[in-house]
């Protein structure tokens, strides 16, 4: 079957199998920032934004994305530009999203496998709650597993990003 979807602001028309997942489609189309981890919705490595909400792409059928907007970690710079609330004012599509920048600066990355999904989950969180408490940050990334660093650095990075992007998270 043929579907049309927008991936990172580019309209794509693709041929898919009815039983194919969005994760399989995206990786086949070259969006390798979308990682396959558990394949069962536990680890969050495959998270993408679907119409602005972070979802496990391993559990979404590609057919369900027909006519919808997908943002992968590769498209976050563009996405932050088009969503001016969180634009740095300088984003040209080749700059890191403020959350990505905070992850780099805070050392919230070790092997990096969980990072795209973790960043996507954080984008959803901060889009809908500009000044989350630490408990809300923890809940926001509770569907994302990291097997290297633990979670302290990621939580700090999300706090830093929240401060930069809006009113900040102090507690």
């Amino acid at each position: 079957m043929r579907i049309t979807l927008t991936v990172n602001e580019a309209k794509r028309e693709v041929e898919i199998e009815p039983g194919e997942t969005l994760l399989e489609l995206l990786r086949r189309e070259g969006y390798k920032g979308v990682k396959k981890g558990c394949g069962s919705g536990d680890c969050g490595a495959c998270a993408v934004l679907l119409d602005g909400r972070a979802v496990n792409s391993c559990l979404v059928l590609a057919a369900k994305a027909d006519g919808r907007e997908v943002v992968t970690v590769e498209g976050l710079a563009l996405w932050s530009k088009s969503h001016s609330r969180y634009s740095t004012g300088r984003a040209k599509g080749d700059e890191l999203h403020p959350i990505q920048r905070a992850f780099v600066e805070e050392g919230a990355i070790q092997c990096g496998y969980c990072t795209p999904g973790m960043v996507i989950a954080a984008v959803d969180l901060l889009t809908h709650n500009s000044s989350p408490s630490e408990a809300q940050i923890r809940e926001g990334i509770s569907g994302n597993l990291c097997r290297c660093t633990g979670y302290v650095k990621q939580i700090e990075a999300i706090k830093t990003a929240a401060k930069r992007m809006g009113e900040g998270a102090d507690d």
């Binding site: 919705g41 969050g44 998270a47 679907l50 909400r53 972070a54 979802v55 496990n56 559990l59 979404v60 989950a121 959803d124 969180l125 809940e139 926001g140 509770s142 569907g143 994302n144």
Partner: peptide, 12 residues
């Protein structure tokens, strides 16, 4: 609902 699964799954 906050105790159900994760935000990623609750979005679906």
């Amino acid at each position: 609902l906050h105790q159900v699964a994760s935000p990623l799954l609750r979005n679906l």
